[in-house]
Design a protein around this nucleic acid. Structure first.
Lengths: 228, 228, 228, 228
DNA sequence: TATGAATGAGTCTTCATTCAT
DNA sequence: CATGAATGAAGACTCATTCAT
């Protein structure tokens, strides 16, 4: 349903921010002002969800942060569940598509591909600070609220294909054969998104670790391991 | 259950550890039967917290799972907060202490130390399946409920010292100098705990990834990176 | 209802008075209908508090009496404590101010002042039937819920000054010197409010004692007692 | 039921404290040790009821103060209601009987009688500090928990006769005829018990008003008021 | 006697949701 | 568009009470 709206948009070159160009939503709100307010609510929800967790964030809190009444939130997103769905369709899923595209570039070499993937991941989180926390908390965890919905929308074939591709590279001798193909992606995410999810609080009182530092660190680890 | 793995003296040598076995708990319940029921509630709470998140798990859910009334939960843990505190003191903190001990072994070589750390991490999670999910969701995330409490109990000096030690190793030429010392731990956790946090659901319908596979994978990555 | 008796300027000239009419309340409800419902809840609460005691009256009971849901009560008064605070500020404190004004009239003679005070007290209770019971139970008693809050709002200097004034009158030979100044007020309240607090039930099945009868009785007692 | 136990005891000369001499209660507890514990619980309950109000005092609070378990309180007083009943029968009612006796002395003159009544009242409260607060809060107030029970046990005939007696005195010219007979008792209680109910907290930080001072004050007020 | 374990009923409070205006 | 009023459902917590030991 939302895919036709987002997938083409995601394919464009100006990055993973869809911004809801022309297409009117089927639901009620549609005016120019309303569209803007709706997008702002989505942004605020995203920010709060990332900061406190989805389950811990009440609609009232979102409304307060936006300076509107809770009833207003219901006006734009008939229900809490729909708000989540729209969040996924309009903010979360596009990022996923974008990332997949980096990996699926058939031209580049295996090692370059993985490095590029890591770097894109870091840039993505830099542009969308909510991504890391949300991913870790609501995507990875068993009962994560995003996980269930994402799983419904996008199957696992994507992942299957990626694993096969990695296994293929190993057979071609282009990748460390001791690695477990099905764990490579988990490792990449674990090495990048995971530390980024904690960076906001780690930065407090400490010298913050910049995104570049993280990218360099992860690439160094991937390229050579920990040995000198 | 978890005690045989972690308890051997570890709890005694730190500060605000549980101090349980001999003296009666300050609170009310203390009989033999009660102590057992209490421990069971703790186990169930841990399980549910890991599965659904702490904030999403009601005391009623814990009670239902245990086959008792919600009032029973209040009987053993005066309040929701106290339940959390006891969970930390009696289940969570001991694991942390155990892990710290592995890293602080002054005898072993840097590379061995890190490998041993990863392996212990994997074993720990294998014996305490709730650990991974709980760590990822409630320890890493900004508003994580465990983070705040753990921070109160244990300061950050521990972490500071570890970082210095790693930097020292790099200077001695015993560790890849391109790594960022303050990120090494995040990487280790990201490579192990992070995938383990998802493994339970990934295993369903899929060929499960065993703990050994994960350990081998991570060690392979650490030792040599992704290059063939 | 009680406003015409007490409000004329009294609330404005003191400190933490209600300041209601013009500006919107800081809290949520503000519409015309809501304001009325809120006032009705306040009235019902006052009535029940007087009849059963504050601690014995549940929010549910107030809601039931008003024909609304308990959640409604929370809608207007975020918490039980706030309901009490508003009760004090908007209903209880104004009466206190009014009474103080009667006593502080610098023109009248001592004996007249005390008599006027008693008469005002009787009239006040007649117009605000909840006052007597509430005063006796929650203001006088050690753990009385009003006592604590009133003490926070208004200090004791008021009382101090009154005592000094009475002592002054005694020195001037205008008041029975055998009286204990610090007990005069207690006596006045004891002679009027105290019997009034019981009158509702005493009246049942008995020939009721009217307010005028009480006033006459107390004045008769006082007149031949307070004169030098 | 309880009357046969208490009325004779009250008639003795050593004051209004019954102390449960020999007679075994019909209920369960009866051993020597138990009897003592039971009396102590009664005392503590009385103290707490007076301090915080009956409704505000939980059985748990009483148990804690006594250093026993809440179950113990149930052991002695099958139910909360029975505790109240026993409190009335064994502590409260005897005082009432004692007071009635003072008033009913047929020998003394009206004015002396009333003065003696006041003085006895003051002494009674001095010996039983819980009396004043309990009377004011739970006896006077409409929903007072003692009121209802006392009313069940002792009718109003007592009061009726007293009123008639006062009216008779007025007709004989021995009492101020402007007084309302049915209010005389209320006035006496209001003048004595009422101030005493507040004295505990008034004393804090202030020079305390002694019982003697109060007695003198009230008598002074009465003497020049009740004389014809 | 005495108590720990256990519970049902009730209280306060929060929150998503609806609806009339 | 926007909001105030209103509510049902659920959650945390308390408390009197029971019962086996």
């Amino acid at each position: 349903m939302a895919n036709d709206v987002l997938d083409p948009g995601a394919g464009a070159s100006e990055g993973p921010a869809p911004q809801k160009k022309p297409g009117r939503r089927p639901g009620r709100p549609s005016g120019a002002h309303g569209e803007q307010a709706r997008a702002q609510l989505l942004d605020i929800a995203l920010e709060l969800f990332a900061r406190q967790g989805i389950g811990e964030t009440t609609l009232g809190a979102i409304a307060r942060e936006a300076g509107v009444t809770p009833a207003m939130v219901h006006y734009y997103f008939k229900t809490r569940d729909q708000l989540l769905d729209m969040l996924i369709d309009e903010r979360f899923a596009p990022l996923r598509v974008e990332l997949a595209r980096v990996f699926n570039d058939p031209e580049s070499e295996p090692v370059d591909t993985l490095r590029a993937f890591v770097e894109t991941l870091v840039v993505t989180v830099e542009k969308n600070p909510w991504f890391a926390a949300l991913w870790v908390r609501e995507m990875v965890s068993e009962g994560g609220l995003l996980r269930q919905r994402m799983a419904e929308r996008f199957g696992d074939e994507h992942k299957e294909r990626a694993i096969e591709r990695i296994a293929g590279w190993q057979k071609e001798g282009k990748l460390n054969p001791a690695l477990e193909p099905s764990l490579v992606f988990a490792s990449l995410f674990g090495l990048t998104v995971f530390p980024l999810a904690t960076s906001r609080w780690r930065a407090v009182g400490d010298r913050a670790v910049t995104s570049e530092q993280l990218a360099r660190h992860v690439v160094a680890l991937l390229m050579n391991g920990i040995q000198p």
